[in-house]
């Protein structure tokens, strides 16, 4: 068996997982993509274990461990997703933007007005921040 075959399959699976993580909106689909990436790694581990004929079977044992950890991760991850859903009635990943810069919304650049009353935008931002912090 050429090791290139499992390695390439694993690379493709991993890339697909990356795409899924980056492109999907639903959080559960993102979790599925994460599972894809983990499985890509597992395939690699098994293939290299077979190739290297490791006496300790470290590759396969680690695969088992990864499977276990993946299960645990999924459990906690789903619990978090459910918590988010309870709070927001939605699990859309791009709807969760509390980390965004608050000044993004006004598209215009405050030019001369800012020069004349330099404190105003700062105060506005501070007010916006405190306003968002309250709920």
């Amino acid at each position: 068996m050429h090791i290139v075959y499992p390695a390439v399959v694993s690379a493709l699976l991993f890339s697909i997982g990356v795409y899924g993580v980056l492109a999907r909106r639903n959080t559960i689909l993102v979790l599925m993509s994460v599972e894809l990436m983990l499985n890509a790694v597992n395939l690699n581990l098994v293939a290299f274990d077979v190739w290297l004929r490791d006496r300790l079977h470290s590759g396969q044992v680690l695969t088992l461990f990864v499977i276990v950890i993946a299960a645990a991760e999924l459990g906690v991850g789903l619990a978090i997703v459910l918590g988010v859903y309870r709070n927001r009635r939605s699990v859309d990943l791009d709807g969760m933007r509390d980390l965004a810069d608050p000044g993004t919304e006004p598209a215009g650049i405050p030019g001369d007005a800012a020069a004349e009353s330099a404190t105003t935008p700062v105060a506005a931002e501070a007010a916006a921040r405190s306003g968002e912090a309250k709920p």
Binding site: V18, Y19, R25
Partner: peptide, 15 residues
């Protein structure tokens, strides 16, 4: 709407 607006970037990075 299962895909977010990030899709082109995601495709690029994945490729």
């Amino acid at each position: 709407d299962l895909d977010s607006g990030n899709r082109p970037v995601a495709a690029l990075v994945a490729l």
